[in-house]
Measured scan of single mutants.
Amino acid sequence: MTEYKLVVVGAGGVGKSALTIQLIQNHFVDEYDPTIEDSYRKQVVIDGETCLLDILDTAGQEEYSAMRDQYMRTGEGFLCVFAINNTKSFEDIHHYREQIKRVKDSEDVPMVLVGNKCDLPSRTVDTKQAQDLARSYGIPFIETSAKTRQGVDDAFYTLVREIRKHKEKMSKDGKKKKKKSKTKCVIM
Rank of each mutant, 00 (worst) to 15 (best):
R102C: 05
P121V: 10
P121I: 11
L120D: 10
R123G: 14
A66L: 10
L113E: 00
T124L: 08
R68L: 03
L79R: 00
R102S: 09
A66N: 10
R102H: 08
V109Q: 02
M111K: 02
D108L: 05
T124D: 13
K104Q: 12
Y96K: 02
S122C: 08
C80L: 15
Q70V: 09
N86C: 05
F78P: 00
E76L: 15
P121N: 13
F82H: 10
T87P: 15
D108K: 08
M111A: 01
D92V: 06
M111L: 06
I100W: 06
P121M: 10
V112K: 00
H95S: 08
T87W: 04
S89A: 13
D69F: 01
E76A: 15
K117V: 15
S122D: 12
K104S: 13
K117S: 14
E107G: 10
V112H: 00
Q99F: 14
D126Q: 07
E98K: 04
D105M: 11
S122V: 07
D69V: 01
Y64A: 13
K101L: 12
Y96W: 15
R68H: 07
T124K: 09
C118T: 08
Q99W: 11
M72D: 03
E76R: 09
E76P: 02
S122M: 07
A83E: 15
M67H: 09
T74G: 12
L120Q: 08
R97N: 05
Y71W: 07
S122R: 07
L120C: 11
E76K: 11
D105E: 12
A83T: 09
R68N: 03
D119E: 09
E107S: 11
Y64V: 08
N116S: 13
M72K: 03
N86R: 03
D92A: 10
A83P: 15
P121D: 14
E98F: 01
C80E: 01
V125F: 09
K104C: 14
R73Q: 12
D105G: 15
S122F: 07
D126E: 08
K104N: 15
A83M: 03
V114N: 00
V109S: 03
R73A: 13
N116E: 06
Y71F: 08
P110M: 02
G75A: 15
K117P: 00
I100P: 01
S106I: 10
N116K: 00
L79H: 01
E63H: 04
P121T: 11
G115R: 02
C118Y: 06
C118W: 09
P110N: 03
K88S: 14
A66M: 08
F78G: 00
R68A: 08
V81Y: 02
S89E: 09
C118E: 08
D126S: 10
K104P: 03
V109F: 14
D119W: 02
S106W: 11
Y64F: 09
D126R: 04
V81M: 14
G115Y: 07
G77D: 00
P121C: 08
G75C: 15
M67T: 06
G75S: 15
A66C: 11
P121S: 13
E107T: 12
A66K: 06
R123K: 11
K88W: 13
R97W: 15
D126C: 07
S106Q: 11
V125G: 12
Y96C: 10
R97P: 02
D126I: 05
P110L: 02
G77E: 00
F78D: 00
M111S: 00
D108Q: 07
P110H: 03
S106K: 09
G75N: 05
I84F: 13
K88M: 08
C80W: 02
D119V: 03
Y71V: 14
R123D: 14
I100C: 05
S122E: 12
T74Y: 07
Q70D: 13
E98D: 07
G77Q: 00
E98H: 02
P121A: 13
E98L: 01
A83L: 02
Q70A: 07
M67V: 07
V114A: 02
Q99C: 05
S122Q: 07
Y96T: 04
K101E: 09
E98W: 00
Y96Q: 04
T74Q: 14
D126N: 09
D105T: 06
F90S: 08
